[in-house]
């Protein structure tokens, strides 16, 4: 039996300097929990996978609406593992994330890794609509296979519009059935962990960051709009996270200096 489930959440300013969550709807394997936020202005939601998911054939979605002025961090309790499911002839699973970030709103979307297990077939789609003064920190990590295992089939698409115009559009396709050369010297070169960290902030409009290498297999690049993207490949999930964590710390500290100094 395949699962169709859409979890929904909405964040709004609570009128007392914090953020309220008037909508917080779990669905199927996607349980949303309000968790304690280390920062007062931010609400925090943790996605708790109540079952292992997605299995081939599942259609999962999360819709999050961050209203004007709200501040929200979304993380997850564990990695998402795409699995083949019981039937060998199962359809691909889909996992769709739709995010809206309003004027002056802040969204930190920091889920754990997406792991493509052998035999799985997942199409992951993330679409973000950012208002001109909205801010976004978003991390995506694709891990190709559990430890010592060949990867499943994984396609991800990340599309971000800011003020109605395209800011970033990236599609990655790996594993059995992916177009040729995906593991070759132009695309992954044998690496099994791939990650993106996107920071969009209107502050970059006046002060864009220069492009910079973060080691031999990672780069921080300013996009054509007010945002930077860290692109990294690594041998495994732990090494990848190390690169992205260092970059995140540096980027957030840089913005803090920018705003206060």
């Amino acid at each position: 039996m395949s699962v169709r489930a859409t979890a929904r959440l909405r964040a709004e300013p609570d009128g007392r300097g914090g953020t309220a969550l008037p909508v917080l709807e779990s669905a199927g394997p996607l349980a949303l929990r309000r968790t304690r936020s280390p920062r007062a202005a931010y609400a925090r939601v943790t996605v708790v996978g109540a079952m292992s998911a997605p299995l081939n054939g599942d259609r999962l979605a999360i819709e999050a609406d961050i209203a004007d002025g709200a501040r929200l961090t979304v993380d997850s309790a564990a990695a998402t593992v795409a699995l083949p499911g019981a039937r060998a002839d199962g359809e691909p699973s889909t996992y769709t994330v739709e995010l809206g970030v309003g004027e002056g709103a802040v969204l930190h979307w920091l889920p754990e890794q997406l792991v493509s297990a052998r035999g799985s077939d997942l199409r992951m789609t993330t679409r973000v609509r950012l208002a001109p003064t909205g801010r976004l920190l978003l991390r995506e990590e694709q891990i190709l296979g559990r430890h010592g295992e060949p990867t499943g089939a994984l396609t991800t698409r990340l599309t971000v519009h800011r003020a109605g115009r395209p800011l970033l559009d990236q599609q990655l396709a790996y594993g059995p059935g992916a177009p040729g050369g995906w593991d070759g010297p132009a695309v992954l070169g044998g690496h099994r962990a791939v990650g993106q960290l996107l920071l969009a902030d209107p502050a970059f409009e006046d002060a864009p960051l220069p492009a910079r290498l973060l080691g031999p297999t990672a780069a921080l690049t300013p996009l054509a709009g007010p945002a930077v993207l860290v692109t990294a490949v690594a041998a495994d999930a732990r090494l990848l996270r190390g690169i992205l964590d260092d970059a995140m710390r540096e980027l957030l500290d840089g913005l803090k200096t920018e705003q206060t100094g």
């Binding site: 599309t159 599609q171 990655l172 010297p185 695309v187 992954l188 690049t221």
Partner: peptide
């Protein structure tokens, strides 16, 4: 329109 990309080429 497709948006297929290659991480190593970008890096």
């Amino acid at each position: 329109l497709p948006a297929a990309s290659a991480p190593l080429l970008d890096i």
